[in-house]
Design a protein around this nucleic acid. Structure first.
Lengths: 349, 349
DNA sequence: TTTCGCCGTGGTAACGTTCCCACAGAGTTC
DNA sequence: GAACTCTGTGGGAACGTTACCACGGCGAAA
């Protein structure tokens, strides 16, 4: 079904075989109008015979469109970012665009290297979770771009896509109230993280709207790790902590650690202590009990970012900030101790 | 630090600015010998001033090297494959090569589409976890390639990189014996999977070497899912099963499910039943107890695959099959009931 | 002095497309 | 019947690079 010579067929080979000019071949393949039936047939046949595949390099060279998009995320091995990448991949594929993926490891130097690679590859645009605090000049990025993730927050006047933390917190607080936990303890990440402030602010807003004094809430903070969550939970358990005990944890890894600490203290989750996570990492489905959590829309973020990018490449530049809604994933770590609760919570997965 | 016109600087802009010919610029940038100090300085200065970045498209067009490698894996969202991709990414970056990543979802049609995209992009080579049972003709793949993963097993005469299942099984059986479980039950995947036969064969070999009748071993099989592992464990518990009870599970997800079933049966892991997994998925670190497992060398596979590919692009084509060793990850799911065991196993993570 | 080789450099032809202009012939309008 | 439009086609330039050849100048060998 193709030449044995090893050389790839070019548009000229196709043209010769079809007995037309390369212009005509290009028109047929480009789906242009005004082609005779006969010419179209002959070209299509010749394409099949030669096994011709257009050379994207040449196309890009001439048309200025490489058909490539770049994405720079912290780590493809991190399940959240893998979801983002996957969403971007799938959306790009719909438009016959291929994705160049890079992992920055939250390292500004690696990021710079990757951005250079993207520029050299002449990608049509880039999706970036920014690491560097300031880029030389955003306008001279050298290509259209979309920022993703909460670190994009630092750059006010750019197009960016992220998850809607305010909505996520509302979702979490609502379910906690509904289940009889109107004043949960809070387990937060390090102060340095941007998302932390947003999380805390949203909790406060929610409390005030419900006439609860936010200062009443127990708060612990730690690193976004299993170990961090475990130690924070130990500290929490040592405090005066009355009533229906529940914790709203700002990160799933920490929540998993907290769950371990509960067990180590001889307590049960969710019977003694309810835990609500935030992220939606896969491991939450395999813990015991399964972690009830709020899932960030990773895949949607990837999809939307590509769409924004495509729009931006085609038309004018927008400078919008897009927040995508999160989703509650109910598993077994949240007890229902509300007045209306049937009998007792079942510790399902 | 660059032109404000928006147009990207070309080698000609650099040449003009440096007052030399583009040939000289190319030689300087290509690191060729026989350049005067003066010319080199002027060129380097001009490059810095113009912000010149070589156009990879043009380079690829002319030199036949696109500087791109493709990788087609089942799903970037799957932690194992993400590891593979990450390894490939890092290794490729060392040679200034960018990676085009695609997810096939174990779908032959998607795979074909992705391979076409790779051909169009004129990648210098491809790393593929093959899905299709037979390709039209391996020699006419249209580019150098390396197969990865156990499904590569189906194609005898190709270069491939995968994990050493025989060594992994030896590792597992050895630790089981050492801990006082000379005849563990086996939990296998579906018969359709290639890895299953290799796993079972290796267990048999190990048994025979140790003078154990392999027929004595309890065997259950199921899907590679949490639910599958759970139901298989239920069936296993219903059997006559004496002595120090341990299960060697051929997949971590199943192992996690088995662990849940143990707990649901009112038994404890590892005190009543020991579980040894196989894969090394991250979720195994967060279960309770932590899952002791054998980790496949995902990252190494990616690294090695890229190295093979680079070799193959440069030199002759090899048709070797490379097996990379797995690693035991000790967490808390394996009890030590051997005679030499200190007192009792601690249920650590 | 002539010849040779080497060094450093410049010019030009590709690579495979797309874009644009030109042009022949058929049909339409006045 | 001349001028015009429309349809289908072909030809050539350009995109930015590298590979190759050519050439002048200089020192060394004959």
């Amino acid at each position: 079904m193709n030449n044995t010579t090893g050389r790839r067929a070019t548009i000229i080979d196709v043209a010769k075989r079809a007995g037309v000019s390369k212009s005509t071949v290009a028109r047929v393949l480009g789906g242009s109008a005004n082609i005779s039936e006969e010419a179209r047939d002959r070209v299509l046949k010749a394409v099949a015979v030669t096994g011709y595949e257009p050379n994207q390099l040449a196309v890009g060279m001439r048309s200025g469109r490489s058909g490539l998009l770049g994405i720079v995320i912290p780590d493809i091995t991190n399940p959240f970012w893998a979801e983002v990448a996957r969403g971007a991949q799938d959306r790009a594929a719909k438009d016959d665009i291929s994705l160049l993926i890079f992992s920055s490891d939250w390292d500004a130097h690696k990021e710079a290297t990757h951005l250079r690679a993207l520029r050299r590859a002449r990608v049509d645009g880039a999706i970036i979770n920014p690491v560097a605090d300031n880029f030389d000049d955003l306008d001279r990025f050298g290509m259209p771009f979309v920022f993703i993730g909460s670190s994009a927050e630092r750059f006010p006047d750019t197009l960016s896509v992220g998850s809607d933390i305010a909505q996520a917190v509302r979702l979490g607080m609502d379910i906690l109230v509904e289940r009889g936990h109107p004043a949960p303890a809070l387990m937060l990440g390090p102060r340095s993280r941007l998302a932390r402030a947003r999380f805390l602010r949203s909790v406060h807003e929610h409390c005030i709207a419900r006439d609860v004094d936010p200062e009443v809430l127990l708060v612990e903070e730690s690193d976004y790790t299993v170990e961090g969550g475990r130690s924070a939970m130990v500290r929490l358990l040592a405090k005066q902590w009355r009533g229906n005990r529940a914790v709203f944890v700002a990160n799933d890894l920490m929540a998993l650690g907290a769950m371990i600490a509960v067990r180590e203290a001889g307590l049960r989750c969710p019977e003694d202590i309810s835990i609500l996570g935030f992220d939606g990492i896969p491991a939450g489905a395999f813990s015991w009990p399964g972690l009830t959590t709020i899932e960030k829309p990773g895949r949607q973020i990837g999809i939307r970012a590509v769409e924004c990018l495509i729009d931006q490449i085609a038309g004018g530049r927008q400078r919008e900030r897009i927040y995508l809604p999160c989703r509650l994933v109910e598993r077994g770590s949240l007890a229902d101790v509300s007045a209306s609760a049937p009998v007792r919570v079942a510790a399902g997965r």
